[in-house]
Nucleic acid binder design. Structure first.
Lengths: 211, 211
DNA sequence: GGATTTTCTGACCATATGGTCAAAATTATG
DNA sequence: CATAATTTTGACCATATGGTCAGAAAATCC
């Protein structure tokens, strides 16, 4: 009937299982931390026997590394909204929007990343030292260019980036606290918009850029 | 020589041991998370046999609860710098300074708090729902008062507080990342000042307050 | 349809961990 | 100094966990 049905289906199954395991792992790692997460629980959430999880990912650390790696890719993707901007209002505004959206749709990933960094980034130090450093230096140069061109106030680019990262990720990492302070209910769509607006307003005005 | 030497010395010894254990626990919990921390390692860092730690703190959870409780007290203390301010520039500026100083001098505590909240605050949910909610609502009302008096822009007080918390705590919780992006060396005193200034500048200008 | 590769899984193992306990050591008390 | 209270500690236990493995089951291939 078709040219290569078997190797395709085979790969599909493998990919599906790996995807289910990775999704379960991200959730469990986010909720319990690396030390608190158990392979048994990950297997249960993925709907597989534990031994089957070990068939696809030999060790807990290997599985964890994969999860963190995926998260980092998504993170970098959102970071792309910075590029191609014609100025600070557009670039930084879009970046804040993208990162807020990421916090809303992908809070578990953000938490795993935060946990990893908080514990000294034992697994992904190489990511930090290479990819993240390079990305950050590049954007810092762009921001410095805007400053030199008089398009925004002279703010230390690094500290500006930290403020944006911290604030946007706060809505994921501290989502539980935000929810508690919101009367124990999650933010509504309107409240998310309000949050985005507030952050963009403060940051853009704070660096001397008109929205 | 003195009135009550024995009961005093006794209490002193107990207090000293408890303090040493709590300090060690805060460090270990911050570095490894609740699940990754072991009573054995806490005992080693405190310089005591494990059984002795269990003599003062029956269970790991009880020890952890104490650590988090102490951290929350310190957190609230810094929050006091908000009060007594005559206006937003003074109040928010002092608050940012206090929280940045806390991140610099007490990063482990900040990390433990962050970890706890990120994992759903299983231990200190009551703190959040009572003390933190009350504190936050009170400060939000103060900020709203400033807005109503036209002393700052109409920014959602809650989101402003989140931005301040997130940004200041970022220097503790993500201290490792900041250090990596700083060429693998900790921030100098001058760089800490630069950070404080940058944060205060952005926030105060961002909400329409002249420094 | 038999051979072969891949996937699945229950049972099992070594180790680490939170916690216990009884007895020793130390300190207080009369 | 004898007695009582407090503190210290090594040895020990039950349990949980990461990981293994041999064989069953399924899928693939000739």
């Amino acid at each position: 009937m078709s040219a290569e049905p078997t190797p395709l289906r085979q790969n599909v199954k493998r990919r599906e299982n790996e995807r289910a395991i990775l999704a379960a792992a991200e959730k469990v790692f986010a909720e319990a931390g690396y030390g608190g997460a158990t392979m048994q629980l990950i297997a249960d959430v993925a709907g597989l026997p534990k031994a089957n999880v070990h068939y696809y990912f030999q060790t807990k650390e290997e599985l964890y590394r994969q999860v963190v790696s995926n998260i980092f890719d998504i993170w970098l993707q959102a970071a792309g909204s910075f590029d191609g901007a014609t100025g600070p209002a557009e670039g930084i505004g879009a970046y804040i929007d993208a990162k807020m959206e990421l916090s809303r749709t992908h809070p578990d990933g953000s938490k795993v990343w935060a946990s990893e960094v908080m514990h000294g980034a034992p697994i992904i130090q190489d990511y930090l030292e290479n990819i993240l450093v390079e990305w950050t230096e590049g954007r810092a140069r762009v921001i410095q260019g805007w400053i030199d061109a008089g398009r925004m106030d002279p703010i230390s680019p690094h500290h500006l980036l930290y403020l944006i990262w911290a604030t946007t990720q706060h809505y994921a990492d501290f989502g539980h606290q935000v929810e508690t302070l919101n009367g124990n209910v999650p933010l509504t769509a309107a409240q998310w918009d309000e949050a985005k607006t507030a952050v963009k307003t403060i940051v853009l005005k704070g660096i001397g850029v008109c929205g």
